[in-house]
C-alpha cells in the first residue's frame, strides 16, 4: 500500500475539470485508489464520486493506493496534484 496527502490549492476546489483529469489518470492503473477528504471517501476513478467529496480549497486529500502498480500510480497521481492541478484554469 502507498499513500500521500495533498492539500487543494486551487481556489475552485475539486471542480469538474481536475476531478475529470484525476479520474482519467487514476483509470490508467490497476491499483485500487481511494481518496479520503475528512469523513468522506471516494473511488479515485469515479468522476461523480470525486466531485461529491465536496472538497474545497484547503481541503486535505488523503490518497490510499494498493495493487500491483501502486508505486507508479502513487508517483503519477502525486505529481499530477502538485504540478498540474489547476494549471491554466
Amino acid at each position: 500500500m502507498k499513500e500521500f496527502t495533498y492539500t487543494i490549492e486551487d481556489p475552485n476546489g475539486m471542480h469538474a475539470r481536475p476531478a475529470g483529469k484525476l479520474a482519467t489518470y487514476a483509470k490508467q492503473f490497476d491499483a485500487d485508489i481511494r481518496v479520503h477528504a475528512g469523513e468522506k471517501e471516494s473511488d479515485g476513478k469515479r468522476l461523480l464520486a470525486l466531485m461529491s467529496l465536496g472538497a474545497t480549497c484547503g481541503t486535505e486529500l488523503h490518497f490510499i493506493i494498493s495493487g500491483s502498480d501502486e508505486e507508479a500510480a502513487c508517483e503519477q497521481l502525486e505529481r499530477f496534484c502538485r504540478e498540474s492541478w489547476g494549471r491554466g484554469e
Binding site: 475539470r17 469515479r46 468522476l47 464520486a49
Partner: peptide
C-alpha cells in the same frame, strides 16, 4: 472541455 466532462458523467460507473 465541458463536453468531455459530460462524456465522463455519461460513462461514470456510479
Amino acid at each position: 472541455e465541458i463536453f468531455e466532462i459530460h462524456a465522463m458523467m455519461l460513462e461514470d460507473e456510479d
